[in-house]
């Protein structure tokens, strides 16, 4: 079955993509670029680098802009799925939803309307096992946004390896933080995945940080051979 993967540039969508590639045929990545930093579903820092990630993975990218208001962004998602079907013949959609009933429900409804299959291969995943598998499988994941206490600006740009995961575990035990960042506590950017033909080298960044809210802006990045 030809599938399009809803793609934010973060670990969950790319891990879901990798899972989907083992069972079905992924034909494109689909990205919604929100102009609203408060977007309910689609806001991600550095989403403009989605094209570079898609190139690294060797997939075409369907990119649709949204003004990012709660209900119209669903129409934009529908527009994106229709474009992916038209251009690449997708028969189904893959998401990286883990716990978010809000997100899963909305994608399910649009898929039903368009007659597309919907797959959520990380649904209710065990957070520990998922994070371990992510690292062990060869994903290079960088923290590109922090949105809750106790994360300070030193977390921005950190790679999630086993020792970072140990620290995240300690934080998750102590604070109301999920190990995966599923509650929006932090966001990630993937620079390498087992199916990437090339990896992304981040060459220049800047940090914006205030009151436990911070974003790593990737100013310059390029593809390099693996």
């Amino acid at each position: 079955m030809k599938l399009g993967v809803l793609f934010s540039g973060g670990k969950d969508s790319l891990f879901a993509c990798w899972k989907a590639m083992q069972k079905e045929e992924v034909v494109c990545l689909i990205t919604i670029v929100s102009r609203n930093p408060e977007s309910y579903m689609f806001h991600t820092p550095n989403i403009c680098l989605a094209a570079l990630q898609a190139e690294a993975a060797g997939f075409p990218l369907v990119e649709v802009e949204t003004a990012g208001e709660e209900e119209t962004e669903l129409l934009d998602l529908e527009r994106a799925l229709l474009a992916a079907r038209e251009r690449y013949g997708i028969e189904g959609v893959v998401t990286g939803a883990i716990l978010s009933v809000y997100q899963a429900t909305r994608v399910q409804r649009i898929c039903r309307k368009l007659g597309l299959w919907c797959f959520n291969p990380l649904w209710l995943a065990d957070q520990e096992a998922y994070m371990e598998e992510l690292i062990d499988a060869g994903f290079t994941v960088v923290i590109q946004g922090v949105f809750s206490s106790p994360f300070d600006d030193s977390w921005l740009g950190r790679e999630i390896d086993h020792s970072t995961l140990d620290e995240l575990r300690a934080i998750a035990r102590k604070y109301q933080v999920t190990l995966t960042g599923e509650g929006g506590e932090f966001e990630t950017f993937v620079t390498d995945a087992p199916f990437f033909a090339q990896r992304i080298a981040i060459e220049e960044t800047s940090k914006v940080y205030r009151n436990h809210n911070g974003v790593l802006r990737i100013e310059r990045a390029r593809l390099v051979a693996k």
Binding site: A20, K23, E24, V94, F119, N120, P121, L122, W123, L124
Partner: peptide, 16 residues
Amino acid sequence: DGSLSRDEFVAPVERL
């Protein structure tokens, strides 16, 4: 058997 949907509909019940 072994479909992509297995992780979504069977694995969560197995973990439970």
